[in-house]
């Protein structure tokens, strides 16, 4: 069979893994350090976690982050799945252009989208008084960048399916509704779930677009971390970061195992 991977290559690879995880581990370690300033280890403590739980601002930001992520994921999964299915199932004029346009939010830097949305909101507000910056405008912004990701994931999962399955449903006298309900949707479900999970994590993690489209009342966790960390490294932020990483870890590791047991 094949030659084994040389030992040096294995070593290099594990060193790169170390590089990927070292900074995250450091944050977790320092969230338990008693010292408020500096890097010297002065003892183990849970104090920073307790002071975090008593911080009203943190609770407010957590709530906003979750509302934003849940609402935007719900809408974008619906719209993006429709788009993904349409692109998978049908040929129509302008399809190539549409597919190219869908790649734009994926490859154009976030800041372009952020400024564009901000100007657009300003423009509409100028004429109609709508779109006061806040959680509402952030939800609209998140849905917009999530749709493309959802559509791409759903479509690429559908392409793995055997087209004969849908034809078989018609051959067996299923009408369009029955075909969608009992054949297409169950088959597409793992893809839709994966897309929703991606949309959710993108929303929770998003900083740049949130930062530009937020109002004074709509603080989210990334914005809170950014504005606090700019003033300096604090142990509370280390604690908050550790909690966020743990939460996403549980979410990501827990989900795919349950939604796709086979394959």
């Amino acid at each position: 069979m094949l030659a084994r991977i040389p030992t040096w290559l294995r070593g290099v690879s594990y060193a790169i893994y170390g590089f990927l995880y070292l900074p995250i581990l450091l944050i977790a370690i320092y969230s338990f350090n008693r010292a408020r300033f500096g890097l010297a280890w002065t003892g183990f403590t849970f104090d920073w976690y307790f002071s975090l739980f008593q911080n009203a601002l943190v609770w407010q930001a957590t709530q906003n982050t979750l509302v934003l992520a849940l609402v935007s994921t719900l809408v974008s999964t619906l719209l993006g799945s429709l788009l993904g299915y349409g692109l998978y199932r049908y040929r129509f004029p302008g399809k190539k252009i549409l597919q190219g346009l869908m790649l734009l939010p994926v490859i154009v830097p976030d800041i372009v989208m952020a400024i564009a949305l901000l100007l657009f909101y300003q423009f509409v507000r100028f004429y109609t008084g709508l779109f006061e910056l806040g959680l509402g405008t952030m939800i609209l912004a998140h849905i917009t960048f999530q749709i493309a990701f959802v559509a791409i994931v759903v479509r690429s999962r559908l392409q793995l399916l055997d087209p004969a399955l849908e034809e078989a449903a018609y051959d067996l006298y299923a009408n369009t509704w029955q075909k969608l309900r009992y054949v297409t949707l169950p088959l597409a479900m793992p893809g839709i779930q994966a897309a929703a999970l991606l949309a959710f994590t993108l929303s929770i993690d998003d900083f740049v677009i949130s930062f530009f489209t937020s109002g004074p009342e709509s603080l989210t966790l990334p914005i809170l971390i950014y504005s606090t960390a700019r003033r300096g490294v604090t142990p509370e932020i280390n604690a908050l970061s550790t909690l966020i990483i743990l939460t996403t870890l549980i979410l990501v590791v827990g989900f795919p195992l349950r939604s796709a047991p086979h394959r």
Partner: peptide, 27 residues
Amino acid sequence: LSVLLPLWSSYLIRVYAWKLILAKEGI
């Protein structure tokens, strides 16, 4: 999964971790 996980942990936090490492009195 180990490559994916850092991607799913907040990008701000990962940037910010480097401040601990690279600062003048850093690690």
